[in-house]
């Protein structure tokens, strides 16, 4: 494999936070509710109104975030579009299934069905951008985004791609999320459950390129997705990249602060006693691709770092599964 380096040259997001190109953790509000909906931007500013009418919220959020991320580069059309999503286009999936029931399995309308597939967002972005290159969508629960990122990372490293647009998208579907509240997996206004999270939705995209620019946010040094995680695995990950534990200056953790997760994050943090720590789900809520927003915060943070020698490490997992590590270096 060649020694191409991979840089984050563009970022874009739609989240429950106010739109920003430079998030400041000290002014961001921590979420308090069980279900948090994303703040919707003015889509008509970036997309033709006629193309918006069939798009569900997830498609619109993904398209908007992708366009913002690409706008930060000089590239008009990316080589590839790679997305990750936990539950895909949930709103259209629910609509389609509800219509099936409502109409006694007759009179099935095509729009919601066509748009309900998990790769709708990646497909729509490709149509809008005229990208006929590699287009892939990963659906791997809480490592969906990391899988998409790893794919782009390996293909750019291996010179199969020069650049890629990579993102994570998940939207709140009212029926599904109501059921998850009944199952005590998502908190309600009245009650915080032992295994309940504060859920949210959003889309976050990155434009990755093998060439750095003056605006580059960070270099992605390595990505790892694991079924289990322990001290040895973390140490090996860092030593493979010739980095000592004390060189990691910041940790971005995808913790939902549940009892079941505590052991994993505590033992992880204990390896880095002097590192700065950010629990990004306090700001963006939990969804299967919330780690994409974590990476956005970490990349912006890396860009602002004064000291060049400190690295930023992201660790994400959920209920002891879907562990991932992403290592960033200031450009």
């Amino acid at each position: 494999m060649s020694k191409n380096t991979i840089y984050i040259n563009g970022l874009g997001s739609v989240s429950i936070q106010e739109q920003s190109r430079n998030f400041d953790l000290s002014t961001m509000l921590e979420i308090q509710q069980g279900i948090n909906l994303a703040k919707q931007p003015s889509y008509k500013d970036l997309m033709p109104p006629a193309s918006l009418r069939r798009m569900s919220k997830g498609v619109k959020m993904g398209m908007y975030a992708a366009k913002i991320a690409l706008q930060e580069s000089d590239i008009k059309t990316p080589d590839a579009i790679i997305t990750g999503t936990g539950l895909g286009c949930l709103i259209d999936s629910e609509k389609f299934l509800e219509l099936l029931l409502e109409n006694d399995e007759n009179h099935l309308t095509p729009t919601a069905f066509i748009q309900s597939t998990h790769n709708t967002v990646g497909g729509q972005i490709a149509l809008q951008m005229g990208c006929k290159g590699y287009n892939f969508t990963y659906v791997h629960q809480n490592s969906s985004f990391e899988s998409a990122l790893l794919d782009a990372f390996l293909q750019i490293k291996g010179s199969e791609l020069e650049n890629a647009l990579v993102g994570g998208i998940d939207e709140v579907g009212s029926s599904t999320y109501k059921n998850l509240q009944i199952a005590e997996k998502i908190n309600t206004e009245e009650q915080l459950f032992e295994s309940g999270v504060n859920a949210a939705e959003g889309a976050t995209f990155f434009f990755l390129n093998k060439e750095a620019t003056e605006k580059s946010y960070a270099e992605i040094l390595d990505i790892s997705i694991e079924n289990t995680m322990d001290k040895n695995r973390i140490e090996t990950f860092l030593s493979d990249n010739n980095i000592a534990i004390q060189e990691v200056g910041s940790l971005f953790l995808g913790s939902c602060e549940l009892a079941v997760d505590k052991e994993y994050f505590s033992s992880f943090e204990s390896l880095f006693p002097t590192a700065e720590k950010v629990l990004y789900k306090r700001y963006v809520g939990h969804h299967h691709t919330a780690s994409a927003f974590g990476l956005l915060l970490a990349a912006e943070h890396a860009q602002k770092q004064v000291c060049n020698e400190k690295y930023t490490l992201l660790y994400n997992q959920f209920e002891g599964k879907d562990h991932s590590l992403i290592l960033l270096k200031k450009c």
Partner: peptide, 17 residues
């Protein structure tokens, strides 16, 4: 009105339903 083939399918369903 600028409708397309997917809209045509929706109209066929509307006529039936």
């Amino acid at each position: 009105l600028g409708l397309d083939s997917i809209d045509a399918l929706e109209l066929i369903v509307l006529m039936d339903k």
